[in-house]
Nucleic acid binder design. Structure first.
Lengths: 222, 222
DNA sequence: ACCTGAACACCGTTCAAGT
DNA sequence: ACCTGAACACCGTTCAAGT
């Protein structure tokens, strides 16, 4: 990985662009037009350089995306006041992560690009694990519990974000409506019964309810 | 969406390639080399045609991917014997979906491309919803519960699959090791304590445990 | 109705050379 | 040390024409 040159010496040509400038410009592009518009070529021209100059500051596009996520995490994750009760603390920490991620429309593509989100998220992970330990779990169980919460949270983001994009895009949403309107009540009675409430029901934000249930289940009987 | 021509008449040129042939070839490419190798151009040559011929049978690449997922679901989802107990039934139905998805390495890219997986998955959704209703939830609560289970399941797949790909790829895994070895026990005591067990702990398959906890939490006190 | 060829407007990345 | 230009090996999709 290329490093900024040591400041004690300036042995070669002085840099014209910096990692910070690259990431800053990348962030702007992504915020204004979405991740799919972020290309190395585009970024190069916006930063006032050539595509290949970028490769002197980042290894490849994937590294750029991870750096971008890190940058976002640093500025978006605000540590909340945490309740004393372990159960509520876990819910609060997970909710804080979830809120930061949900507010970031381009997160999905990057989420699926790395599982350890960012250094600045570790404090939240600590709160989750310690809350679960205080709730009665062993350390190992608490780490597993944290993973379960992370699965649930990441899944919620991915599924809801994708569904939202779909809806915004075009008429393909009618596929679901079509399927649900043609349900056989003999074969799939509950789905047929819920068919016309399905859209509003799944549009509701139930992250918190599901999270509470999960935490309750994880700590049940301890 | 283009349809196969009505068989009662053959008014124009006879088709040389079919939707089935396209999907079949696409499946082979994806199974052998991964989704990222599936391109319209590549697919066209493998199917013995030109890129543009494909657009007569599918709307665009995204539709192709959704058709591919559908095709996979039809052949991979096997309905299991379901236990009578509602709680266990929910766990069994979710586990069956999870197993089918987890066995499919290219699933992530397509998962994030549509939230209603496939018609053939509806039976499983029915089992989940009805299990939750019998477990004491209202129909609306049961639909929300199903969503929570789906978030958890999709998240598990996405996170674990991505982590696995990472590991296979290259040396970037050392990033996590580096972060975890440098933890400050004052600031993040639990994480520091779990640091050297982190890799094996997160490698364990704990889908089922987390699922049970979630279902237990959803049905708690009913 | 179905397919082809050529073109449009792009990609990420490598390599060799310049300052 | 840092940057440039040209090139490589691709993309998905549109359009106009052919059979």
């Amino acid at each position: 990985m290329p490093q900024p040159s040591a400041s004690r010496r300036t042995p070669g040509r002085p840099p014209r662009i910096s990692r910070e400038a690259i990431i800053g410009t990348a962030r702007r592009i992504v915020e204004e037009e979405g991740v799919h518009r972020l290309t190395m070529r585009r970024l190069a021209t916006e930063v006032g350089s050539t595509p290949m100059a970028l490769y002197h500051h980042v290894r490849d596009k994937e590294e750029l995306l991870v750096l971008l996520l890190d940058d976002y995490a640093v500025r978006a994750l605000r540590r909340p006041e945490l309740p004393a009760d372990p159960r509520e603390r876990v819910v609060a920490a997970a909710t804080a992560i979830h809120e930061a991620l949900a507010a970031c429309p381009w997160i999905v593509e990057v989420l699926t690009a790395d599982d350890l989100m960012s250094k600045s998220a570790l404090w939240f992970v600590e709160q989750l694990v310690s809350g679960l330990v205080e709730g009665g779990l062993s350390l190992d169980e608490a780490v597993h519990g944290y993973r379960a919460i992370w699965y649930y949270t990441a899944g919620e983001i991915v599924v809801r974000r994708t569904a939202a994009r779909r809806r915004a895009e075009d008429d393909r949403r009618t596929y679901r409506e079509e399927v649900f309107s043609g349900l056989d009540p003999e074969e799939l009675p509950r789905l047929a019964q819920a068919a016309d409430r399905w859209a509003p029901l799944t549009a509701e934000d139930t992250y918190r309810d599901g999270l509470k249930a999960l935490v309750e289940g994880l700590l049940a009987g301890r």
